[in-house]
Design a protein around this nucleic acid. Structure first.
Lengths: 113, 113
DNA sequence: CTACAAGTTAAAGTGAACTTGAAGTCAAGC
DNA sequence: GCTTGACTTCAAGTTCACTTTAACTTGTAG
């Protein structure tokens, strides 16, 4: 897939895809022309990046996670699950914080009265 | 209170307090020396800012909220409550998103299989 | 062949939220 | 009076996650 098609399909701008590639989060091959060609699997990788960002990971952290994927074979569903496995806790923590904040709304901010 | 004491008590760096003041989020009087003197009430205002930030508001949005506080009297508990009243919904939405994301963890990212 | 859309690079710009640095002033203890 | 620490201003620097720009090259339709 060209970068444009990948952008359309993933909903992530071409410039962002180039940026991600520069950071090593995704990889492309090059056509004879020098144009990027993304494999179909890039879409899943990009979806993972977007997902992880929504949870609050930085691109650097996401890169570190992606680096854990096996290099010797295409990642299986299990590989992806292992990757995001630890996030449940992270999400729960954030939810708990928000709930604390919400319950704090009924109190006087700053003094707790 | 001096800026240093305010910083210690609020847990917000002096540089950040100056920055907030520059943005109009907090106000100080000046001692003869030109040094800032914050009223005790600034602490509550700062706590509000920190709180609102954790919920995800930008400083600009927070400024707009703070601008709604009455200028003719010190804000009462009711004033603060009115201010943060609409946040419950916002927090709930974010919690709902996180829960959606979390439940998405058990699915295959990017393909939903 | 000519447009014109889509791709390339490197470098600079953006905006949010601060922090840091330089150069100087002020307050307190000895 | 001197030192030290806390303060002042203003400008510039930082990090994150991109976007924009400029100057070109490629691919495609007519």
């Amino acid at each position: 897939m060209t970068i444009g098609e990948t952008a359309r399909r993933s909903g992530v701008a071409s410039s962002a895809l180039r940026f991600y590639e520069e950071k090593g989060l995704i990889v492309s091959e090059r056509a004879g022309s020098g144009h990027r060609r993304y494999p179909r699997s890039a879409l899943r990788r990009i979806a993972f990046i977007v997902f992880a960002q929504r949870i609050g990971l930085t691109l650097e952290e996401i890169g570190a996670e992606l680096a854990k994927l096996p290099k010797d074979h295409a990642p299986t569903r299990g590989d992806w699950e292992r990757l995001s496995g630890s996030w449940s806790k992270r999400i729960d923590q954030r939810i708990a914080e928000l709930q604390r904040l919400k319950s704090g709304l009924t109190k006087c901010i700053g003094c707790g009265c």
